[in-house]
């Protein structure tokens, strides 16, 4: 193997792959999986420090198709957030990466999704959003657009739940939207999300080629390719010092993350300040009103403590605490018993 095909920790891209995919050929979820593999490889993540988490659905199934050398949990429909929360509390040194679907997150799992964000469990949370239930064969999900048509389910008359807007309202500090057909953007967002100190949500429009890829669908490849309107050109820069290119003032915005890396947002057609919560919500609302498919980093705010920090968990993960710290001392125990028996 040549030097160029290994990353900084000596692993090849293959080391980040999983089992062969069993999804339909062309499924958007497979494109996302390959960008997860690429991002983890490029970031040189030690596989054992990552856990891959998912619920139930085609999207959630795909957790088996990447990061085969990382532990993982393909859990229950809509309940991945609680399982991930527990894993974080037991071992906050692990970096969870989760894949979920629009049904998994916005229908059955909406409550757990919101509460995970409210608690700020540090993780990469990818919603592979196809506006449909793939695995149960083509029913509407709660993110289907008004007027969207499906072969068996007919026309949807209800407004969609906007995963990104919900995330911002729930206190999430990293909210992005992307398109499975925009590989580079997906990859850069995943890399940035991995370096974000908190819960990071990426809502990826990920077409279901079998049940919702017709031309009138707002979750189809054709729609995505013709309508995607990136807010900025995003690149993740792991080591800021090395960056030399200079931009004209106002042309690019660099946002530094707490550990040093930088997210560079090169301006395209519009001005958007992702650190402005109101602006982020306004952007989503304007895009909705104008039927625009806006992608990019919508909101960024790294100031909230993670759940482990809020609860005051120390450096050593709870799962690794020695018995002396998991049990009371004999003295503390005896003092308590003396008080209870009235002998103290």
């Amino acid at each position: 193997m040549t030097q160029a095909t290994v990353n900084a920790i000596g692993l090849t891209k293959n080391d980040y792959r999983g089992a062969p995919s069993t999804l339909c050929a062309g499924c958007g979820h497979d494109s996302v999986a390959s960008q997860i593999i690429a991002a983890a490889f490029e970031l040189s993540l030690p596989p054992h420090t990552v856990i891959r988490m998912s619920g139930i659905g085609c999207s959630s199934k795909s957790a088996a198709y990447f990061l085969g050398r990382s532990h993982g949990f393909n859990s229950l429909h809509g309940r991945m957030p609680s399982v991930t929360t527990g894993a974080h509390l037991a071992n906050h040194t692990l970096r969870p990466l989760a894949v979920s679907g629009d049904g998994d997150t916005a229908s059955i799992g909406l409550g757990q999704f919101i509460h995970l964000l409210r608690r700020n469990v540090p993780m990469v949370y990818i919603v592979e959003n196809n506006g449909v239930y793939g695995l149960t064969k083509g029913q509407f999900s709660a993110t289907a657009d008004e007027g969207q048509e499906l072969k068996h389910a007919g026309v949807n008359h209800l407004p969609p739940i906007d995963v990104c807007a919900e995330a911002i309202l729930a206190g999430c500090g990293f909210v992005a939207r992307s398109f499975a057909g925009d590989a580079k953007q997906v990859r850069e967002l995943i890399k940035a999300a991995f370096n974000f100190h908190g819960a990071a949500v990426i809502d990826v429009i990920s077409p279901c080629v079998t049940f919702n890829n017709h031309d009138r669908s707002t979750k189809s490849y054709t729609y995505g390719k013709t309508h995607e309107s990136p807010i900025h050109d995003i690149s993740f820069i792991p080591h800021y010092e090395e960056v030399t290119i200079d931009y004209e003032p106002g042309e690019a915005r660099d946002v530094q993350l707490h550990d040093g890396p930088v997210i560079r947002l090169r301006k395209l057609h519009r001005d958007h300040d992702p650190t402005d919560r109101m602006a982020a919500l306004a952007l989503l609302e304007e895009a909705r009103a104008a039927n625009e498919f806006v992608t990019g980093l919508i909101y960024l705010n790294e100031h909230r403590p993670t759940l482990a920090e809020t609860l005051g968990i120390g450096q050593t993960p709870i799962a690794a605490l020695p018995e002396e710290r998991l049990r009371p001392s004999r003295e503390a125990f005896a003092a308590m018993m003396a008080e209870l028996t009235g002998a103290g």
Binding site: V83, G86, L89, A90
Partner: peptide, 30 residues
């Protein structure tokens, strides 16, 4: 050196057991 037991009031009992299962999976007594 930090709490030795994380206590979370969950949003419901589904999440409560989900958190316990996630923590047990990752090696804590939950």
């Amino acid at each position: 050196d930090g709490t030795t037991c994380a206590i979370v009031q969950a949003e419901d009992e589904i999440a409560a057991l989900g958190i316990v299962i996630g923590a047990g999976w990752a090696g804590a007594r939950a």
